Amino acid sequence: MSALAARGVRVRFGAARAVDGVDLEIGSGEIVALVGESGCGKSSLARALLGLVRPSDGTVECADRPLDYRRLKAFRRHVQLVLQDPSGSLNPRHTVYEAVAEGLRIHKVPGDERELVAAALAKAGLRPPERFFLRYPHELSGGQRQRVVIAGALVLEPDVLVADEPVSSLDASVRGEILALLLRLRAELGLSLLVVTHDLGLAWNIADRVAVMYLGRIVETGDTAEVLTAPRHPYTKALLSVVPEIARQEPIVLKGETPDPSRIPAGCRFRPRCPAYAAGLPAELAERCEKESLPVLPADRGHHAACVLP
């Protein structure tokens, strides 16, 4: 059973096709990394999966059921967001206790509030939890603030966490601790995670599967080890070439900027920046690159790439 899924999802902002047809599944207890450069549409897809943006086409499913937009409050108990900037996520006027208890009060969760807040802080690695109750965000380190944000999500006992760049604002020494925490939460609580990131090194360290996004579409998807050691799409190869932990070749410098999502090229959307196309392809493949609109990649567990190259 999939914990959260996109089925043919499209998101438009005027003429801009931010998400242009995506099938993606996050299985129960699975960690999926959604990777790509800024402007590729990954945050718009995450917002659609969270119910913050309603797709112009396609459906979002939670536990194999279509999302009911009339019951978003109930849905958000099951799917919680962890933002990249803990300083911006926390109200500087609220104590740690108030920040974590806010979700309980909004959703009117029964039980002893103090005990539930303490349990969430302990799960997030802030022990003893009572020591943090009356602290304010400015009194905490960056890693501790991110743990408070995670505790605020955990207090509602969700099934899925959507983590948007969860360690990008943290020091290198703290990044590993937060990643280890997310892995422990998956192991202990059976949580599913969608990790939105531009960092393939992070995906290598945490994810079971990777989905690489470019200009509103997933262009390669599959098992993390398979995609990152034997990439099939030229875009994935370019991203990997600049990751120190993984790179086995000279960096591939892509020419030009990410195309305008309101003017997506015909044929392969990566063609204007593709090193393989620029270097020259056989006439038949070049024609397919220029004219053939590749289908949306399936959401199954196989290794797929939206590319005409063998």
Score class of each variant (00 low, 15 high):
Glu226His: 03
Gln146Thr: 08
Gln144Gly: 13
Val155Trp: 04
Pro261Ile: 04
Arg147Gly: 11
Arg71Met: 02
His304Ile: 04
Pro92Glu: 09
Glu165Gly: 09
Phe133Tyr: 14
Met1Leu: 10
Leu116Lys: 14
Gly142Pro: 14
Leu161Arg: 07
Leu285Val: 15
Val210Trp: 01
Val82Phe: 01
Pro234Leu: 11
Pro282Glu: 13
Ala207Lys: 08
Glu287His: 12
Arg131Leu: 13
Leu193Gly: 11
Val9His: 06
Pro272Gly: 12
Ser56Trp: 00
Ala101Pro: 12
Pro129Ser: 05
Arg273Lys: 12
Ile252Trp: 02
Leu309Pro: 15
Ala48Asn: 10
Ala180Asn: 15
Ala163Cys: 15
Tyr136Cys: 12
Val79Lys: 08
Ala247Trp: 00
Leu45Thr: 08
Arg105Pro: 03
Phe270Asp: 10
Val210Asp: 10
Asp300Trp: 01
Thr258Tyr: 00
Glu292His: 09
Ala15Asn: 12
Ala180Val: 04
Gly14Thr: 07
Gly36Asn: 07
Pro166Gln: 02
Gly36Glu: 05
Asp20Ser: 05
Val11Met: 02
Gly302Pro: 08
Ile246Thr: 06
Val79Tyr: 01
Ala119Trp: 02
Gly176His: 05
Val149Met: 03
Leu134Arg: 15
Leu34Gln: 11
Ala279Pro: 14
Gly14Leu: 05
Asp159Asn: 07
Ser38Met: 09
Ala151Pro: 12
Val148Ser: 09
Val96Ser: 08
Asp57Ile: 00
Leu297Thr: 07
His233Trp: 01
Lys291Leu: 13
Arg209Ser: 09
Arg248Cys: 02
Ala276Leu: 14
Ser44Val: 05
Val79Asn: 07
Cys268Asp: 13
Leu228Phe: 02
Leu179Val: 15
Leu228Gln: 04
Arg7Tyr: 00
Lys108Arg: 15
Arg127Tyr: 00
Leu72Trp: 01
Ala6Lys: 04
Glu292Tyr: 06
Glu284Lys: 14
Ala151Ser: 06
Glu287Arg: 15
Ser89Glu: 03
Gly125Asp: 13
Tyr69Asn: 02
Lys291Glu: 13
Ala15Val: 09
Ala6Ile: 09
Leu281Phe: 06
Leu193Pro: 12
Val117Ala: 03
Ala283Met: 03
Pro272Ala: 11
Arg71Trp: 00
Gln249Pro: 01
Cys289Asp: 13
Glu30Leu: 10
Pro128Asp: 05
Leu45His: 04
Cys274Tyr: 07
Leu24Cys: 13
Glu37Gln: 13
Glu287Thr: 14
Thr224Cys: 07
Leu183Gln: 15
Val219Thr: 11
Arg70Phe: 00
Leu67Cys: 07
Val149Arg: 05
Ser168Phe: 06
Pro66Glu: 00
Ser28Gly: 13
